[in-house]
Design a protein around this nucleic acid. Sequence first.
RNA 1: GUGGCUGUAGUUCAGCUGGUUAGAAUGCCGGAUUGUGAUUCCGGAGGUCGUGGGUUCAAGCCCCAUCAGCCACCCCA
Length: 419
Amino acid sequence: MADLQPVRGTHDLLPDDMRAHRHVSDTARGTAALHGFDEIATPIFEFTNVFARTLGDTSDVVTKEMYTFEDKGGDMLTLRPENTAGVCRAFISNGLAQHAPVKYFYSGPMFRHERPQKGRLRQFHQIGIELIGAAQPLADVEAIACGHAILTDLGVVDKTVLELNTLGDTDSRAAYREALVEYFQGHLDKLSTESKDRLTRNPMRILDSKDEGDRKIVADAPIFSDYLNTESVDFFAAVKSGLDALGIKYTLNPRLVRGLDYYCHTAFEFTTDALGAQSAVMAGGRYDGLIGMLGGQETPGVGWAAGIERLAMLSGATPTADRPIVIVPMGEAAEAQALALTRTLRNAGLRTEFAFSGNMKKRMKHANKVNAWAAIILGDEELSKGVAQVKTLDDGEQKEVAMANLSAALPLLRAGDRG
RNA sequence: GUGGCUGUAGUUCAGCUGGUUAGAAUGCCGGAUUGUGAUUCCGGAGGUCGUGGGUUCAAGCCCCAUCAGCCACCCCA
Protein backbone atom coordinates (compact mmCIF):
# COMPACT_ATOMS: atom_id res chain seq x y z
CA MET A 1 0.00 0.00 0.00
CA ALA A 2 1.49 3.27 -1.04
CA ASP A 3 2.08 5.68 1.80
CA LEU A 4 1.12 8.63 -0.33
CA GLN A 5 -2.58 9.19 0.12
CA PRO A 6 -4.64 11.73 -1.74
CA VAL A 7 -6.04 14.57 0.37
CA ARG A 8 -9.08 13.45 2.31
CA GLY A 9 -12.26 13.63 0.30
CA THR A 10 -10.47 13.96 -3.05
CA HIS A 11 -10.42 11.36 -5.78
CA ASP A 12 -8.34 10.51 -8.80
CA LEU A 13 -10.45 10.04 -11.88
CA LEU A 14 -8.85 7.10 -13.67
CA PRO A 15 -9.96 6.41 -17.26
CA ASP A 16 -13.00 4.34 -16.31
CA ASP A 17 -14.17 6.95 -13.79
CA MET A 18 -13.37 9.70 -16.21
CA ARG A 19 -15.50 8.16 -18.93
CA ALA A 20 -18.45 7.80 -16.57
CA HIS A 21 -17.87 11.38 -15.53
CA ARG A 22 -17.65 12.63 -19.09
CA HIS A 23 -20.73 10.69 -20.04
CA VAL A 24 -22.67 12.73 -17.50
CA SER A 25 -21.21 16.12 -18.33
CA ASP A 26 -21.26 15.60 -22.10
CA THR A 27 -24.87 14.45 -22.04
CA ALA A 28 -25.84 17.38 -19.86
CA ARG A 29 -23.95 19.86 -22.00
CA GLY A 30 -25.65 18.60 -25.14
CA THR A 31 -29.12 18.59 -23.69
CA ALA A 32 -28.62 22.01 -22.10
CA ALA A 33 -27.49 23.36 -25.46
CA LEU A 34 -30.68 22.00 -26.98
CA HIS A 35 -32.54 24.10 -24.42
CA GLY A 36 -30.54 27.17 -25.33
CA PHE A 37 -28.03 27.13 -22.48
CA ASP A 38 -24.47 27.83 -23.59
CA GLU A 39 -21.47 26.79 -21.58
CA ILE A 40 -19.39 29.23 -19.61
CA ALA A 41 -16.64 28.77 -17.05
CA THR A 42 -15.83 31.02 -14.16
CA PRO A 43 -12.67 30.84 -12.03
CA ILE A 44 -12.35 28.09 -9.47
CA PHE A 45 -11.61 30.69 -6.81
CA GLU A 46 -13.16 34.07 -6.13
CA PHE A 47 -12.75 36.76 -3.52
CA THR A 48 -14.21 35.36 -0.32
CA ASN A 49 -16.77 38.16 -0.32
CA VAL A 50 -18.47 36.77 -3.37
CA PHE A 51 -19.58 33.75 -1.34
CA ALA A 52 -19.78 35.31 2.09
CA ARG A 53 -22.15 37.99 0.87
CA THR A 54 -24.41 35.78 -1.17
CA LEU A 55 -24.57 32.55 0.73
CA GLY A 56 -25.30 34.40 3.94
CA ASP A 57 -23.23 34.24 7.06
CA THR A 58 -25.59 31.79 8.75
CA SER A 59 -25.28 28.99 6.23
CA ASP A 60 -23.18 25.96 7.03
CA VAL A 61 -21.39 26.35 3.76
CA VAL A 62 -20.02 29.71 4.72
CA THR A 63 -19.56 29.21 8.42
CA LYS A 64 -17.65 25.96 8.33
CA GLU A 65 -17.18 24.43 4.94
CA MET A 66 -15.27 26.87 2.78
CA TYR A 67 -11.65 26.52 1.73
CA THR A 68 -10.57 30.06 2.40
CA PHE A 69 -7.02 31.33 2.32
CA GLU A 70 -4.98 34.49 2.01
CA ASP A 71 -2.91 34.65 -1.13
CA LYS A 72 0.53 36.18 -1.46
CA GLY A 73 -0.92 39.55 -2.26
CA GLY A 74 -2.94 39.56 0.96
CA ASP A 75 -6.32 38.97 -0.70
CA MET A 76 -8.81 36.64 0.94
CA LEU A 77 -9.80 34.01 -1.58
CA THR A 78 -12.11 31.02 -1.46
CA LEU A 79 -12.32 27.88 -3.56
CA ARG A 80 -15.85 27.94 -4.88
CA PRO A 81 -18.27 25.80 -2.86
CA GLU A 82 -20.87 26.26 -5.62
CA ASN A 83 -21.04 28.09 -8.91
CA THR A 84 -24.14 30.26 -8.85
CA ALA A 85 -22.43 33.10 -7.03
CA GLY A 86 -19.53 32.98 -9.48
CA VAL A 87 -21.80 33.07 -12.51
CA CYS A 88 -23.71 36.02 -11.09
CA ARG A 89 -20.46 37.81 -10.34
CA ALA A 90 -19.44 37.22 -13.95
CA PHE A 91 -22.81 38.54 -15.06
CA ILE A 92 -22.07 41.79 -13.26
CA SER A 93 -18.35 41.99 -14.10
CA ASN A 94 -18.97 41.59 -17.80
CA GLY A 95 -21.94 43.91 -18.00
CA LEU A 96 -24.13 41.11 -19.29
CA ALA A 97 -27.31 42.82 -18.14
CA GLN A 98 -27.58 44.30 -21.62
CA HIS A 99 -27.94 40.78 -23.03
CA ALA A 100 -30.45 39.61 -20.45
CA PRO A 101 -32.05 37.19 -20.26
CA VAL A 102 -29.00 34.97 -20.56
CA LYS A 103 -28.86 31.19 -20.25
CA TYR A 104 -25.70 29.48 -19.10
CA PHE A 105 -24.51 25.95 -18.50
CA TYR A 106 -21.43 25.09 -16.47
CA SER A 107 -19.52 22.05 -15.35
CA GLY A 108 -16.59 21.86 -12.99
CA PRO A 109 -15.11 21.16 -9.57
CA MET A 110 -16.47 22.59 -6.32
CA PHE A 111 -14.93 22.42 -2.87
CA ARG A 112 -16.50 21.94 0.51
CA HIS A 113 -14.78 20.93 3.72
CA GLU A 114 -17.28 18.32 4.86
CA ARG A 115 -16.88 14.89 6.36
CA PRO A 116 -16.64 12.62 3.31
CA GLN A 117 -19.02 9.78 2.59
CA LYS A 118 -20.00 7.95 -0.52
CA GLY A 119 -21.38 10.53 -2.91
CA ARG A 120 -20.03 13.33 -0.80
CA LEU A 121 -16.52 14.56 -1.43
CA ARG A 122 -14.46 17.59 -0.57
CA GLN A 123 -13.63 18.16 -4.19
CA PHE A 124 -16.67 17.18 -6.17
CA HIS A 125 -18.07 18.14 -9.54
CA GLN A 126 -21.25 19.82 -10.51
CA ILE A 127 -23.11 20.62 -13.65
CA GLY A 128 -25.64 23.37 -13.53
CA ILE A 129 -27.59 25.97 -15.40
CA GLU A 130 -28.51 29.55 -14.67
CA LEU A 131 -31.18 31.59 -16.35
CA ILE A 132 -30.57 35.19 -15.42
CA GLY A 133 -32.77 38.17 -16.11
CA ALA A 134 -36.14 36.49 -16.40
CA ALA A 135 -38.68 37.04 -13.64
CA GLN A 136 -41.48 35.00 -15.16
CA PRO A 137 -42.57 31.68 -13.69
CA LEU A 138 -42.07 30.19 -17.13
CA ALA A 139 -38.34 30.66 -16.63
CA ASP A 140 -38.55 28.38 -13.61
CA VAL A 141 -40.44 25.86 -15.69
CA GLU A 142 -37.79 26.11 -18.40
CA ALA A 143 -35.00 25.46 -15.90
CA ILE A 144 -36.76 22.46 -14.38
CA ALA A 145 -37.66 21.12 -17.82
CA CYS A 146 -34.03 21.26 -18.87
CA GLY A 147 -32.94 19.42 -15.73
CA HIS A 148 -35.65 16.86 -16.22
CA ALA A 149 -34.55 16.30 -19.80
CA ILE A 150 -30.96 15.76 -18.70
CA LEU A 151 -31.99 13.20 -16.10
CA THR A 152 -34.08 11.53 -18.75
CA ASP A 153 -31.18 11.40 -21.20
CA LEU A 154 -28.98 9.93 -18.52
CA GLY A 155 -31.59 7.27 -17.89
CA VAL A 156 -31.97 8.11 -14.21
CA VAL A 157 -35.17 10.09 -14.15
CA ASP A 158 -37.14 7.03 -13.02
CA LYS A 159 -34.94 6.71 -9.97
CA THR A 160 -35.76 10.24 -8.86
CA VAL A 161 -38.69 12.19 -7.54
CA LEU A 162 -39.14 15.87 -8.21
CA GLU A 163 -39.99 17.65 -4.98
CA LEU A 164 -41.38 21.11 -5.28
CA ASN A 165 -42.11 23.95 -2.93
CA THR A 166 -42.36 27.70 -2.86
CA LEU A 167 -40.45 29.94 -0.52
CA GLY A 168 -42.61 32.88 -1.52
CA ASP A 169 -41.41 36.39 -2.06
CA THR A 170 -39.49 38.41 0.50
CA ASP A 171 -42.56 39.79 2.24
CA SER A 172 -44.25 36.43 2.57
CA ARG A 173 -41.11 34.82 3.85
CA ALA A 174 -40.46 37.57 6.39
CA ALA A 175 -43.99 37.33 7.74
CA TYR A 176 -43.80 33.56 8.00
CA ARG A 177 -40.41 33.65 9.60
CA GLU A 178 -41.68 35.97 12.23
CA ALA A 179 -44.64 33.72 12.99
CA LEU A 180 -42.40 30.67 13.15
CA VAL A 181 -39.94 32.23 15.54
CA GLU A 182 -42.76 33.33 17.77
CA TYR A 183 -44.28 29.87 17.77
CA PHE A 184 -41.05 28.02 18.50
CA GLN A 185 -40.08 30.53 21.12
CA GLY A 186 -43.11 29.33 23.02
CA HIS A 187 -41.81 25.74 22.90
CA LEU A 188 -38.18 26.54 23.44
CA ASP A 189 -37.71 24.10 26.30
CA LYS A 190 -38.88 21.15 24.24
CA LEU A 191 -36.76 21.85 21.16
CA SER A 192 -33.58 19.88 20.45
CA THR A 193 -30.28 21.69 20.91
CA GLU A 194 -29.79 21.70 17.17
CA SER A 195 -33.14 23.28 16.56
CA LYS A 196 -32.56 25.95 19.20
CA ASP A 197 -29.53 26.85 17.16
CA ARG A 198 -31.59 26.79 13.97
CA LEU A 199 -34.09 29.13 15.54
CA THR A 200 -31.68 32.02 15.36
CA ARG A 201 -29.89 31.00 12.18
CA ASN A 202 -32.56 29.57 9.93
CA PRO A 203 -35.88 28.84 11.64
CA MET A 204 -37.41 27.23 8.56
CA ARG A 205 -34.87 24.46 8.92
CA ILE A 206 -36.60 23.28 12.08
CA LEU A 207 -39.50 22.14 9.90
CA ASP A 208 -37.12 19.62 8.39
CA SER A 209 -35.75 18.26 11.67
CA LYS A 210 -35.48 14.50 12.11
CA ASP A 211 -35.66 14.76 15.88
CA GLU A 212 -38.88 13.17 17.19
CA GLY A 213 -39.48 15.78 19.83
CA ASP A 214 -39.08 18.50 17.25
CA ARG A 215 -41.48 16.76 14.91
CA LYS A 216 -44.25 16.83 17.46
CA ILE A 217 -43.83 20.54 17.90
CA VAL A 218 -43.53 21.08 14.17
CA ALA A 219 -46.83 19.31 13.63
CA ASP A 220 -48.70 22.27 15.07
CA ALA A 221 -46.43 24.98 13.71
CA PRO A 222 -47.82 27.71 11.48
CA ILE A 223 -48.15 26.65 7.87
CA PHE A 224 -46.37 28.62 5.20
CA SER A 225 -49.22 28.61 2.75
CA ASP A 226 -51.23 30.74 5.19
CA TYR A 227 -48.62 33.46 4.93
CA LEU A 228 -48.14 33.54 1.18
CA ASN A 229 -49.40 36.70 -0.43
CA THR A 230 -51.35 36.71 -3.68
CA GLU A 231 -48.29 37.36 -5.85
CA SER A 232 -46.47 34.37 -4.37
CA VAL A 233 -49.49 32.10 -4.71
CA ASP A 234 -50.03 33.11 -8.32
CA PHE A 235 -46.38 32.64 -9.15
CA PHE A 236 -46.33 29.14 -7.73
CA ALA A 237 -49.55 28.25 -9.50
CA ALA A 238 -48.03 29.31 -12.80
CA VAL A 239 -44.97 27.14 -12.21
CA LYS A 240 -47.11 24.16 -11.38
CA SER A 241 -49.35 24.53 -14.39
CA GLY A 242 -46.27 24.89 -16.59
CA LEU A 243 -44.93 21.59 -15.31
CA ASP A 244 -48.33 20.02 -15.77
CA ALA A 245 -48.41 21.21 -19.36
CA LEU A 246 -45.07 19.49 -19.95
CA GLY A 247 -46.21 16.32 -18.23
CA ILE A 248 -43.45 16.60 -15.63
CA LYS A 249 -44.56 14.94 -12.43
CA TYR A 250 -43.76 16.41 -9.04
CA THR A 251 -44.73 16.07 -5.44
CA LEU A 252 -45.28 19.06 -3.21
CA ASN A 253 -43.03 19.13 -0.21
CA PRO A 254 -43.81 22.02 2.15
CA ARG A 255 -40.75 21.07 4.18
CA LEU A 256 -38.38 21.58 1.28
CA VAL A 257 -36.36 24.63 2.27
CA ARG A 258 -33.02 26.01 1.27
CA GLY A 259 -29.83 26.42 3.22
CA LEU A 260 -28.80 29.36 1.14
CA ASP A 261 -30.30 32.76 1.85
CA TYR A 262 -30.82 34.03 -1.64
CA TYR A 263 -33.53 31.65 -2.72
CA CYS A 264 -37.14 32.75 -3.12
CA HIS A 265 -40.29 31.44 -4.78
CA THR A 266 -39.62 28.13 -6.50
CA ALA A 267 -37.45 25.59 -4.70
CA PHE A 268 -37.08 22.12 -6.16
CA GLU A 269 -35.02 19.03 -5.74
CA PHE A 270 -34.76 15.79 -7.67
CA THR A 271 -34.17 13.28 -4.91
CA THR A 272 -33.43 9.58 -4.84
CA ASP A 273 -33.37 6.84 -2.25
CA ALA A 274 -30.66 4.96 -4.11
CA LEU A 275 -27.74 6.91 -2.70
CA GLY A 276 -28.11 6.41 1.04
CA ALA A 277 -28.29 9.59 3.02
CA GLN A 278 -27.24 11.64 0.01
CA SER A 279 -30.67 11.98 -1.46
CA ALA A 280 -30.34 15.22 -3.41
CA VAL A 281 -29.29 14.67 -6.99
CA MET A 282 -30.23 17.94 -8.59
CA ALA A 283 -31.38 20.97 -6.64
CA GLY A 284 -32.17 24.53 -7.41
CA GLY A 285 -34.61 27.34 -7.38
CA ARG A 286 -35.15 31.02 -7.88
CA TYR A 287 -32.68 33.56 -6.53
CA ASP A 288 -34.02 36.99 -7.34
CA GLY A 289 -32.06 38.74 -4.61
CA LEU A 290 -28.65 37.35 -5.35
CA ILE A 291 -27.31 39.77 -7.94
CA GLY A 292 -28.46 42.70 -5.89
CA MET A 293 -26.65 41.30 -2.87
CA LEU A 294 -23.49 41.12 -4.94
CA GLY A 295 -23.76 44.80 -5.74
CA GLY A 296 -25.32 44.56 -9.18
CA GLN A 297 -28.60 45.98 -10.34
CA GLU A 298 -31.50 43.91 -8.99
CA THR A 299 -31.85 41.04 -11.47
CA PRO A 300 -33.95 37.91 -11.12
CA GLY A 301 -32.50 34.48 -11.75
CA VAL A 302 -33.29 30.81 -11.56
CA GLY A 303 -31.12 27.74 -11.87
CA TRP A 304 -29.99 24.43 -10.45
CA ALA A 305 -26.90 22.37 -9.79
CA ALA A 306 -26.39 18.63 -9.85
CA GLY A 307 -23.56 16.46 -8.59
CA ILE A 308 -21.74 14.63 -11.36
CA GLU A 309 -20.47 11.88 -9.04
CA ARG A 310 -23.96 11.24 -7.75
CA LEU A 311 -25.42 11.20 -11.24
CA ALA A 312 -22.70 8.84 -12.43
CA MET A 313 -23.41 6.48 -9.53
CA LEU A 314 -27.12 6.62 -10.20
CA SER A 315 -26.83 5.93 -13.89
CA GLY A 316 -24.30 3.16 -13.39
CA ALA A 317 -23.40 3.46 -17.07
CA THR A 318 -19.71 3.14 -17.71
CA PRO A 319 -19.13 3.71 -21.38
CA THR A 320 -16.23 1.74 -22.77
CA ALA A 321 -13.39 3.25 -24.74
CA ASP A 322 -13.43 2.97 -28.52
CA ARG A 323 -11.61 -0.22 -29.50
CA PRO A 324 -8.43 0.43 -31.44
CA ILE A 325 -6.70 -1.17 -34.37
CA VAL A 326 -3.22 -2.39 -33.53
CA ILE A 327 -0.52 -2.48 -36.15
CA VAL A 328 1.90 -5.35 -35.73
CA PRO A 329 5.02 -4.86 -37.83
CA MET A 330 7.73 -7.53 -38.10
CA GLY A 331 11.16 -6.36 -39.18
CA GLU A 332 12.72 -2.95 -39.65
CA ALA A 333 11.37 -2.31 -43.11
CA ALA A 334 7.87 -3.07 -41.89
CA GLU A 335 8.23 -0.81 -38.88
CA ALA A 336 8.99 2.17 -41.06
CA GLN A 337 6.02 1.35 -43.24
CA ALA A 338 3.84 0.81 -40.18
CA LEU A 339 4.57 4.25 -38.84
CA ALA A 340 3.29 5.80 -42.03
CA LEU A 341 0.27 3.55 -41.83
CA THR A 342 -0.64 4.65 -38.30
CA ARG A 343 -0.79 8.17 -39.60
CA THR A 344 -2.96 7.27 -42.55
CA LEU A 345 -5.42 5.39 -40.38
CA ARG A 346 -5.52 8.05 -37.71
CA ASN A 347 -6.16 10.67 -40.34
CA ALA A 348 -9.06 8.53 -41.47
CA GLY A 349 -10.47 8.78 -37.97
CA LEU A 350 -9.58 5.26 -36.87
CA ARG A 351 -8.22 4.79 -33.37
CA THR A 352 -4.89 3.15 -34.03
CA GLU A 353 -2.06 1.86 -31.89
CA PHE A 354 1.37 0.58 -32.72
CA ALA A 355 2.71 -2.62 -31.15
CA PHE A 356 6.36 -1.77 -31.09
CA SER A 357 8.02 -4.25 -28.81
CA GLY A 358 8.64 -7.95 -28.57
CA ASN A 359 8.21 -10.82 -30.96
CA MET A 360 5.01 -11.32 -32.87
CA LYS A 361 3.41 -13.24 -30.06
CA LYS A 362 4.02 -10.39 -27.64
CA ARG A 363 2.65 -7.90 -30.07
CA MET A 364 -0.49 -9.90 -30.67
CA LYS A 365 -0.87 -10.22 -26.95
CA HIS A 366 -0.58 -6.50 -26.65
CA ALA A 367 -3.31 -6.08 -29.26
CA ASN A 368 -5.55 -8.31 -27.22
CA LYS A 369 -4.75 -6.54 -24.01
CA VAL A 370 -5.71 -3.12 -25.32
CA ASN A 371 -8.99 -4.65 -26.51
CA ALA A 372 -8.23 -4.08 -30.19
CA TRP A 373 -10.89 -5.19 -32.61
CA ALA A 374 -8.31 -5.80 -35.33
CA ALA A 375 -4.60 -6.37 -35.76
CA ILE A 376 -2.82 -5.41 -38.95
CA ILE A 377 0.18 -7.62 -39.58
CA LEU A 378 2.93 -6.29 -41.74
CA GLY A 379 6.06 -8.29 -42.56
CA ASP A 380 8.55 -8.63 -45.41
CA GLU A 381 6.25 -10.87 -47.43
CA GLU A 382 3.37 -8.43 -47.20
CA LEU A 383 5.62 -5.49 -48.02
CA SER A 384 6.82 -7.12 -51.20
CA LYS A 385 3.25 -7.75 -52.27
CA GLY A 386 1.96 -4.33 -51.18
CA VAL A 387 -0.62 -5.86 -48.85
CA ALA A 388 -1.31 -6.30 -45.16
CA GLN A 389 -2.90 -9.10 -43.17
CA VAL A 390 -5.94 -7.87 -41.29
CA LYS A 391 -7.00 -10.13 -38.44
CA THR A 392 -10.29 -9.38 -36.71
CA LEU A 393 -9.66 -10.45 -33.17
CA ASP A 394 -13.13 -11.48 -32.07
CA ASP A 395 -13.63 -14.14 -34.73
CA GLY A 396 -9.94 -14.77 -35.40
CA GLU A 397 -10.39 -14.44 -39.13
CA GLN A 398 -7.61 -13.06 -41.27
CA LYS A 399 -7.82 -11.41 -44.65
CA GLU A 400 -5.26 -10.01 -47.03
CA VAL A 401 -5.98 -6.41 -47.97
CA ALA A 402 -4.07 -4.18 -50.38
CA MET A 403 -2.27 -1.42 -48.51
CA ALA A 404 -3.90 1.25 -50.63
CA ASN A 405 -7.37 0.06 -49.69
CA LEU A 406 -6.84 -0.26 -45.96
CA SER A 407 -8.50 2.84 -44.62
CA ALA A 408 -11.53 2.23 -46.80
CA ALA A 409 -11.72 -1.50 -46.10
CA LEU A 410 -11.29 -1.41 -42.33
CA PRO A 411 -14.61 0.22 -41.44
CA LEU A 412 -16.39 -2.41 -43.54
CA LEU A 413 -14.56 -5.23 -41.79
CA ARG A 414 -15.65 -3.74 -38.51
CA ALA A 415 -19.27 -3.46 -39.56
CA GLY A 416 -20.00 -6.79 -37.90
CA ASP A 417 -18.42 -5.59 -34.69
CA ARG A 418 -20.02 -2.74 -32.90
CA GLY A 419 -18.09 -2.82 -29.68
C1' G B 1 -17.95 18.99 13.67
C1' U B 2 -20.37 14.31 16.71
C1' G B 3 -21.01 8.90 17.10
C1' G B 4 -20.09 3.91 15.02
C1' C B 5 -17.79 0.07 11.65
C1' U B 6 -13.48 -1.10 8.77
C1' G B 7 -8.05 -0.94 6.97
C1' U B 8 -3.60 -7.83 5.07
C1' A B 9 0.02 -8.44 -2.36
C1' G B 10 -2.11 -3.89 -8.19
C1' U B 11 -7.45 -5.85 -7.08
C1' U B 12 -11.09 -9.03 -4.15
C1' C B 13 -10.28 -11.62 0.18
C1' A B 14 -8.41 -15.92 3.90
C1' G B 15 -5.30 -15.93 8.25
C1' C B 16 -7.88 -20.80 14.23
C1' U B 17 -8.20 -18.83 21.51
C1' G B 18 -1.10 -13.92 19.79
C1' G B 19 3.82 -18.71 18.42
C1' U B 20 8.84 -20.48 13.44
C1' U B 21 10.48 -17.99 6.33
C1' A B 22 1.93 -14.28 6.01
C1' G B 23 -1.68 -17.53 2.02
C1' A B 24 -5.51 -17.98 -2.22
C1' A B 25 -7.90 -16.17 -6.47
C1' U B 26 -7.34 -12.68 -10.13
C1' G B 27 -3.94 -9.35 -12.37
C1' C B 28 1.30 -8.55 -13.79
C1' C B 29 6.16 -10.56 -15.91
C1' G B 30 8.62 -14.84 -18.31
C1' G B 31 8.44 -19.75 -20.76
C1' A B 32 5.82 -24.19 -23.63
C1' U B 33 11.53 -24.06 -30.94
C1' U B 34 11.08 -20.29 -36.37
C1' G B 35 5.33 -14.78 -38.27
C1' U B 36 -0.21 -14.91 -34.86
C1' G B 37 -3.74 -12.92 -29.34
C1' A B 38 -8.02 -14.23 -25.91
C1' U B 39 -8.30 -20.95 -23.74
C1' U B 40 -4.52 -24.64 -21.33
C1' C B 41 0.24 -26.01 -18.86
C1' C B 42 4.88 -24.52 -16.25
C1' G B 43 7.78 -20.79 -13.73
C1' G B 44 8.63 -15.83 -11.45
C1' A B 45 8.15 -11.10 -9.20
C1' G B 46 5.06 -8.51 -5.79
C1' G B 47 3.14 -7.38 1.22
C1' U B 48 8.26 -3.65 6.87
C1' C B 49 -0.10 -6.86 7.50
C1' G B 50 -2.63 1.95 6.72
C1' U B 51 1.02 4.74 9.95
C1' G B 52 3.41 5.62 14.87
C1' G B 53 3.88 4.08 19.75
C1' G B 54 2.92 0.33 23.72
C1' U B 55 2.01 -4.68 26.27
C1' U B 56 4.53 -9.62 25.68
C1' C B 57 9.83 -14.32 25.56
C1' A B 58 6.73 -13.66 20.98
C1' A B 59 1.58 -9.41 17.54
C1' G B 60 -1.44 -9.26 11.21
C1' C B 61 -4.18 -10.81 15.63
C1' C B 62 -4.26 -7.31 22.37
C1' C B 63 -3.98 -1.66 24.02
C1' C B 64 -3.37 3.73 22.74
C1' A B 65 -2.83 7.49 19.17
C1' U B 66 -3.07 8.98 14.19
C1' C B 67 -4.48 8.81 8.92
C1' A B 68 -7.99 7.08 5.37
C1' G B 69 -12.60 4.70 3.64
C1' C B 70 -17.58 3.55 4.79
C1' C B 71 -22.39 4.25 7.78
C1' A B 72 -25.59 7.50 10.67
C1' C B 73 -26.20 12.60 12.45
C1' C B 74 -25.34 17.58 10.63
C1' C B 75 -25.54 19.67 5.94
C1' C B 76 -25.96 19.19 1.03
C1' A B 77 -24.86 18.01 -4.97
